[in-house]
Structure formats: C-alpha cells, structure tokens
Nucleic acid binder design. Structure first.
Length: 562
RNA sequence: CGGGACGUAGCACAGCUUGGUAGUGCACUACCUUGGGGUGGUAGGGGUCGCGCGUUCAAAUCGCGUCGUUCCGACCA
C-alpha cells in the first residue's frame, strides 16, 4: 500500500468518547471508526489486522479438522422459541418483522442453526463425529457498550460446534478445540489465562474461558499464588474452615438510627465486620428468599442460581423488601422472619453476631443460629476474595482482570434433547447427539492485543498481526533519488512476499515517524540522507536502536528479522 | 431500567447566564517557506448550531417535547 494514493488518515488529537486505550488508539490510527453506540466500521488498516487474526484462527480450526460454513444472521424467531432460549436471551436479542409481520431476530449466537444443519446429515453413529465452524456477525443488544471493540452490539465471532455420539467422544473433540484455541492465542501474542466459568445461558456441563489479562477487563480472574488454579470469580469455590462457637450471650436490640451502610455500624458501634451479617432478600424464580452472608462477604448470584437450579435470580425491589420486613431497606434480618433462610457456610461458625431487626432503625446483637432463628440451608454462596485460601492447594488467592476473548463449552445433550437431534447406534437404538460449542471474538482479540501491546506513541503490533510488516518512509519526496529508492524497495520487498507500507506522502519527517509509530508497524525503513552512501536506516518499533543497511541487503535483512 | 451530563464545521471545543452579523485550534485547498520526530506564514473552502413545537419583531441562546451520545449504577453469552 502506498499512502499517497490510498485511503489513510490518522487523528492528531485524542477522541473524546473512547474510554479505553485500545479504542482510542484504534480510532486515532484510522483503523476503526465508531458508527453508533457499540457499532464500528473497520477501515483498511484495521480490517487487515482483523483478517490476520481470522487467518490464524481459521488455520488452527482447519488443522483441528473442523469445516467452515456460513449461517445466516437473519433468523426466524421461532427457532429460538423451540430451543427455549427466546425468553432466556430476552431483550439482548435484536428483533424485527418482515413485510408480512413474521417475526425474525438477528442471530446473537448460532447453536440452533448448527443443530439444524447437523440434523439434516446425522442419521447414524457412523456419521459422527464432526465439527463445523463459521466467522459470522453476531448481534447482541448490549445495555451498555463499552471500551471500544471490547463490548459491542455487532461483532464477528468465530463459533464452532462439535457433534459426537457420547461424552468420551466430546472429550476428544473438546480437547482438539481447546488445543487449537491455545495455539491461536499464542500465535496472536496474547497474554491470557484459562479459567473455569459459569455455563450461563449456554447451559451444559463445562465452560472454560480464555481471558486476556488486562486492567480494563470486565471479568475477575481468581488465581492462586502457588498452583495453577484459575477460575472466574462467578464460579470460584470458597474454602470455609469451621471454628468453635462462643458461649451464647443474650439477644439484645440495638438502636441504630441513621445507619445506612455496614461501614457506619463499624464506625459508630465498634462492632467488627466479622461479627456482623447482612441479609438480602432475593427473588429466586420470583420467590423471595432471605440470603445471609458475613458483612464483609459478597453474595454470588451465579452460585445462588446453581444452588436453586433457578432461571432468574434478582435482588428484590425496595418495595418488596419493605413489605416483607415491615421495615425500611437496610434492616432485614433472619430473626422472626417467615422467609426461607439460606446462609453462607461461614455463618455456621459465627456466634453472637449482629443481624437486622426487621424494624426500622434497629439491629439485634448476639444473635445465634439455632437459638434465635433457623437456617434451612448452609451453602457456598459468597465470592472468594484476594488473600483467601486456594480451594485447590491451600495457597493464597489473588485477582486479575480479564477480557474474555474465547470460550469453550461442553454442552452435552441439552440442545439435541430440546430440538431432537438423534442418531441410531449399532444396536438400532436412538441417542441424543452430544455437542460442544466454541467461540472466539476476533475483534475483541484485536482490542485486547492493543491493550497489551502499546506505548506512549501508539500501538506496537506483534509481527504476526501487524497490518504491514514493514513501513518504508521516504523523508523528502522532493528528492527524486529518495522517491525512486523508496519505490524500488517497495517493489523488492513486495516481490519477496512481505507486506509493505510506503509512506510517500509529502509530509514532514516527524509527521510520518509519528504516524508509523501510532499505527504500530513493527519495522521501519527510513530512506533519507544516508541514501547518498547507498544506505537506509532500519528501526524496530519496540527498539530505539537504528541500524544502517546497504540498499542491496535490505530484502535479506528484513527476511531474517521476520 | 434508575440517576447525571452533553449534542455548534471531519475532530476537540468556545459562544448560551444577560436573545440581535456563528467563532477558535487541529484537519482540508492554494501559494510562499521549511525539510530527520506533529515547520512558519498569507489567502481560502466547509456549519439547516441534533430534530420538532412553542415564546418573541428576532432563538445556537429561553420553554416543552423528542432523538442521539456519554458517565455512574443495575443487567450482561
């Protein structure tokens, strides 16, 4: 690409409505442009990078034996109704009607269609296993798009689906995808962790996430200092060590006016948080339940959902809480409550603790389980915290933030049962097909890579992803010899199979240097005053050193650095 | 969905309080200048002031509505 005659621009000033380093740099370097909230255009340079990411993934998918297909985006709504996911995905789905009033949706994920495709092929166990994948645009009406390309409403996803006759087969298919994912992310130069995760809307047996480590990541990764334990916060088990109970003290009412938060209680009444509990009223599949955890713990809604096998878990509204406790919000408690009470394991070893009194402006001190109220179930329902004990090895837990760039699921027979995908085995009996699904967001990978690979001057692309491997900068376009040498190098490098960008614009040297740094081309060849000695300068983007290279050695030198 | 802010040239913003000729910087065009880390200058082009209704002799400016963007929270595959 020769810049003088190409669509290429950069912005000198920061863009206002980008809230992430990657979003800002990608927009400023002219790679992408925001079109509406959470919807972006990919411009020539950005699209080249996206294509390189796709090429890596495609290569690994094909090596793993998967076959590429392309499903539609426009899908009859009934497809998702049959699988039971229309309601589950709810308002995250873009929906529309055709001219006859028939409801359609824009596909947010494609399990259903792949299952239908599989159904037109699978008859017998002899047809299994196989794996299909696609790169296709997904539409998800996110309530809050954020962080440039990281949380968007329209994005390309590589999704793959494996079909097996049994769980043993799924294990094999899953492992192939898992390895292909690791290889893909390694080739992209991403720093990532693989964590256990919630199966969420997908359902199924196992979910593992590939998380790019980044400050702006929206997922909390739970990691161990000593072993390789790695889990998403939402599913990370907690270790609870039971401790002996103290002698029960008499239950007393405590007048606690103007106390809105736990911290006020600690400050005003000198009660340690380890002696306090909080009671929250949750609607679990619309049924109110009182959930208790120690005050300094957080309730984990995913664990609640699993514990109850529920579809919906939501905090009760203030009105509901006030009706049920007959007190203002902030004073709910277990004593005298008619609600079902579920408490975290940690509550079991607590004695003489504080609870809400179900009475505005009052708490109760020295409450005790068994004497003052009954817990119908103790369970692990809190979030693990940094410094906690590792559930795997007993080491110490720390957190990192992660951007979910890939996800692998063992779905089992959930979808094949719901939609009737079956095969005949050798004994002539029907069985549901066992499925796995595997997703990567190339755009999110792109953004995550920029988050991890940039400096004060701009993007620093890993070699495998850079839109161009080499930038040839002609310093003074008024000097014919420089222009000719630049063009000659461009032709030679191109002929050698190297992606070259020629900056032949009539701009100041500083402008070109800054632009090439911003865009993040890994290698820069400067054609300037050293040309008089038959030499050009070679500089790596991530290195300050400048090397003089003879004109006729340039192609070989660049090849050796590749 | 709840709360806040903002919509004026491609980008970033001023002007609005107190209504009266639409501005600045960057970018863009031409010429001169300069030519190794975002040269300096001169002259230009580009805007139904998000949209609608209202108040007024007169609205970017005041009022109501609406759409969009954004921030915090909720939600989130």
């Amino acid at each position: 690409m020769k810049l003088k005659s190409s669509y290429f621009f950069t912005l000198r000033e920061n863009v206002k409505d980008e809230d992430s380093a990657s979003g800002n740099l990608l927009v400023r370097s002219g790679m992408i442009k925001k079109n509406s909230s959470g919807v972006y255009m990919y411009l020539p340079l950005g699209y080249r990078v996206l294509k390189k990411i796709e090429a890596i993934i495609r290569d690994e998918m094909n090596k793993a034996g998967a076959q590429e297909v392309l499903m539609p985006s426009l899908i009859p709504e009934e497809v998702y109704e049959q699988s039971g996911r229309r309601a589950l995905i709810g308002s995250s789905m873009f929906s529309l009607k055709d001219r006859f009033g028939k409801p359609f949706v824009l596909g947010p994920t494609h399990e259903e269609l792949f299952l239908m495709a599989a159904a037109s092929y699978v008859k017998s166990y002899k047809d299994l296993p196989f794996n299909l994948y696609q790169f296709q645009t997904k539409f998800r009406d996110e309530p809050r798009p954020r962080f440039g390309l990281i949380r968007v409403r329209e994005f390309i996803m590589k999704d793959a689906y494996s079909f097996d006759k049994d769980l043993a087969g799924l294990d094999v298919s899953y492992q192939k995808m898992f390895d292909a994912y690791k290889a893909s992310f390694d080739r992209m130069g991403l720093d990532y962790k693989i964590v256990r995760a919630d199966t969420g809307v997908m359902g199924g047996l196992l979910s593992e996430e590939f998380q790019a480590v980044s400050e702006i990541g929206e997922d909390k990764l739970v990691l161990c200092d000593t072993c390789d334990f790695a889990s998403n916060l939402e599913v990370s088990a907690c270790v609870t060590v039971d401790e002996p109970l103290e002698a029960f003290k008499p239950l007393e009412e405590l007048y606690t006016p103007k106390v809105g938060k736990i911290k006020d209680l600690v400050d005003n009444y000198k009660i340690p948080e380890s002696k306090m509990t909080k009671s929250m009223i949750y609607l679990i599949d619309k049924q109110p339940v009182l959930i208790m955890v120690r005050s300094d713990d957080e309730i984990n809604e995913v664990k609640l959902q699993k514990l109850f096998g529920a579809t919906s878990v939501e905090l009760a509204s203030n009105e509901v809480v006030e009706t049920l406790t007959k007190a203002r919000v902030g004073f709910a408690g277990p004593v005298g409550s008619s609600l079902k009470i579920v408490a975290d394991h940690r509550i079991r070893s607590m004695s003489n603790f504080l609870v809400g009194a179900n009475k505005t402006d009052y708490h109760l001190v020295n409450a005790n389980v068994g004497r003052d109220f009954t817990v119908s179930q103790f369970a692990d329902i809190r979030n693990i915290k940094p410094g906690d004990t590792c559930p795997n090895c007993g080491g110490t837990i720390h957190f990192k933030n992660g951007i979910e760039v890939g996800n692998t699921f063992k779905l089992g027979d959930k979808y094949s049962q719901a939609l009737g995908l079956e095969y005949l085995d050798a004994e002539n009996t029907l069985h549901p097909v066992i499925m796995g699904s595997y997703g990567i967001g190339p755009g999110r990978c792109l953004a995550a890579i920029v988050e991890q690979h940039h400096d004060e001057f701009g993007i620093v692309w890993p070699k495998a992803l850079a839109p161009f491997q080499v930038a040839v900068v002609v310093i003074n376009t008024k000097i014919e010899a420089q222009v000719d040498a630049g063009n000659a190098l461009y032709d030679q490098l191109t002929a050698a199979g190297i992606d070259v960008l020629l900056d032949d614009r009539d701009e100041r040297a500083g402008v070109k240097f800054n632009d090439m740094d911003l865009v993040g081309i890994p290698l820069r060849i400067t054609v300037g005053k050293t040309l008089e000695n038959g030499q050009v300068e070679l500089k790596a983007r991530n290195d300050k050193a400048i090397h003089l290279v003879d004109l006729h050695d340039v192609v070989n030198t660049v090849k050796s650095l590749r």
